[in-house]
Computed example of a mutant assay.
Amino acid sequence: MKQAVLYVGHGSRVKEAQDKAISFMRSCMPLVEADIQEICFLELTKPSIEEGFEACVKKGATHIAIVPLLLLTAMHAKSDIPIEIEKGKQRFPHVQITYGKPIGVNQEVTKAVVARIEEAGYRGERAQILLIGRGSSDPDVKRDVCGIADDVRNMLPHAEVFPCFITACEPNYRDVLAQLTADHDTPVYIVPYLLFTGILMKEIEREASKVRKRLQNIHVCRYIGFHPHVKAAYIERIKETILNKEDAFRFRGDRHASNPS
Rank of each mutant, 00 (worst) to 15 (best):
I66F: 09
V161N: 13
R222M: 06
L195C: 01
A149Q: 03
K239E: 10
L70Q: 11
A149K: 11
R212M: 09
S136M: 03
V113Y: 10
S12C: 05
V191D: 06
K202R: 13
I199Y: 04
S48V: 10
P192K: 03
I36C: 09
L44Q: 04
T62K: 13
R206T: 12
N172K: 12
K15W: 05
V32N: 01
C40W: 05
S79H: 13
D183E: 06
R250N: 04
T73Y: 14
G135W: 14
R153E: 14
L44E: 10
V67Q: 10
K20V: 11
T197N: 09
S79L: 15
I190F: 06
P171I: 02
V191Q: 08
A77T: 09
V57A: 09
L71G: 08
L200S: 13
C28L: 15
G9P: 11
A120T: 04
V114E: 10
R250D: 00
H94V: 08
I97G: 14
M75W: 10
R214T: 06
L215R: 02
F53V: 04
F41L: 05
Q18R: 14
V176R: 07
V211E: 04
P102L: 13
D247S: 11
I66G: 03
A232E: 11
N244Q: 09
L72G: 01
A74C: 08
F251R: 00
G104M: 15
E240C: 00
D247K: 08
F92Y: 15
V211F: 15
Y193H: 09
L195T: 05
K78W: 13
G121E: 09
L200T: 12
N244E: 07
V176A: 09
P30Q: 12
H229I: 02
I148P: 04
Q37V: 15
F92G: 08
G104K: 08
G147M: 07
G100I: 10
Q96G: 14
P68Y: 14
A127P: 09
N172T: 01
P157K: 00
L180M: 10
P139D: 03
V67M: 07
V8D: 02
F165S: 12
F165M: 09
K20F: 09
K59A: 08
V141L: 14
E33M: 01
F53R: 01
C164T: 11
D185P: 02
V109P: 07
V67F: 07
P228Y: 09
G198L: 01
T45A: 06
M25L: 08
S137T: 11
R91T: 04
V5Q: 06
L44S: 02
N259F: 03
E236F: 06
R126C: 11
R212A: 05
E236L: 10
Y99Q: 12
A127Q: 08
V105R: 04
K111C: 10
F24D: 05
N259G: 12
T241D: 10
C169S: 07
